[in-house]
Amino acid sequence: MIEDRELDAWREQWTSVAKPSASFQRDFQRKVQQRIKRHNRRFVLGNILTVIAFVGILIFAVYMRHQATWMGPGWAISICILVFVAVSLRIWVFRRTWRPEAQSTRAFLELWRKRVEARIRLLRISTYLSIGWLIFCAALMAVNWPIIGQDFRAHPKSWLAMLVVCVLMQPVMLWYGAGWLRRRKQAELHEVKQILNEMDA
């Protein structure tokens, strides 16, 4: 057995760091239990809110479907298509990128990298999709202008509100929201790759 005094000294210093007392340990366990309960509550609440949001969207779509204006059915169809596309895209992009923390560090980092890359890809696809959606809507409006024009003259306020929300807000969301998120994700990707490189070096 080779004696390694340096390592023994380090270990001694290292293990003297934390010797929690019994009361401290109890206090810690209580805090962890509280945190678990909070986490469980948040999980249940999150699921309830998702269901409420989904049902709300459906109710809104059905309500819009029965509106007198021409844009009612358009709203309903758009909402349904957008929800379907968003959910499918998310599931597709994040396939096989779940992040179980009980895996080895290497596997965890690989999955983390895949996940960040998937998120960046999702952002890029979402940007293209929303630009495409905007062009598609503009083209559809141009083709159907004789009918839409009448509706526009009949309900100018509603149309203007929709145009402001859809046309003006979209570039703001794209350039500032998505751009900021993309920069953040790229920094995260850089960090993960750096750790992976350190592991390989």
């Binding site: 380090w10 210093q13 290292w14 003297s16 401290f24």
Partner: peptide, 21 residues
């Protein structure tokens, strides 16, 4: 330390070494 109460027998020199490590 994670336990904020220091142990009575802990020596200053040991603490310094630990902090350095």
């Amino acid at each position: 330390p994670i336990d904020p109460r220091p142990h009575p027998d802990e020596q200053v020199a040991q603490i310094d070494q630990r902090v350095r490590l």
